[in-house]
């Protein structure tokens, strides 16, 4: 399972970086989204993979060994929100730049 997730992170990163380096704004926004999936999964995997050990406790005395690490999850939750905000902002900047310059090239002009 670890191997599959690692390959998945790798493929998402590869696709994301490739798109990030493309000249069209829409490609960049898709690339950023793919990179944020990859990074979120990467941070999440820092807590190691556990099945059926969600950090929702029962109350009473708690043995931390029965639950997965909640810290990476809290971090990823924040990361999801921020990447949503980033995507929204980038999309609007992209649209404004397109309206302003007449092109969807990342530099604002065709080469």
């Amino acid at each position: 399972m670890e191997l599959i997730l690692a390959i998945a992170v790798g493929v998402l990163t590869t696709c994301g970086v490739w798109l990030l380096l493309r000249p069209r704004t829409f490609q960049v926004i898709v690339g950023l989204s793919l990179i944020s999936y990859a990074v979120n999964l990467f941070i999440f995997s820092m807590g190691r993979l556990r099945i059926d050990a969600a950090p929702v406790i029962e109350g009473g005395v708690i043995d931390p060994a029965n639950y997965t690490d909640p810290v990476p999850q809290a971090l990823v939750l924040t990361a999801i929100v921020i990447s949503f905000a980033m995507t929204a902002l980038f999309l609007v900047v992209l649209l404004a730049a397109r309206g302003f310059t007449g092109t969807d090239h990342v530099d604002g002009r065709e080469r």
């Binding site: 670890e2 191997l3 997730l5 690692a6 390959i7 992170v9 790798g10 493929v11 998402l12 990163t13 590869t14 696709c15 970086v17 990859a38 999964l41 990467f42 995997s45």
Partner: peptide
């Protein structure tokens, strides 16, 4: 970059 990320997370 992709291979690096995959290796590191694995």
């Amino acid at each position: 970059a992709g291979c690096g990320m995959a290796l590191m997370s694995y």
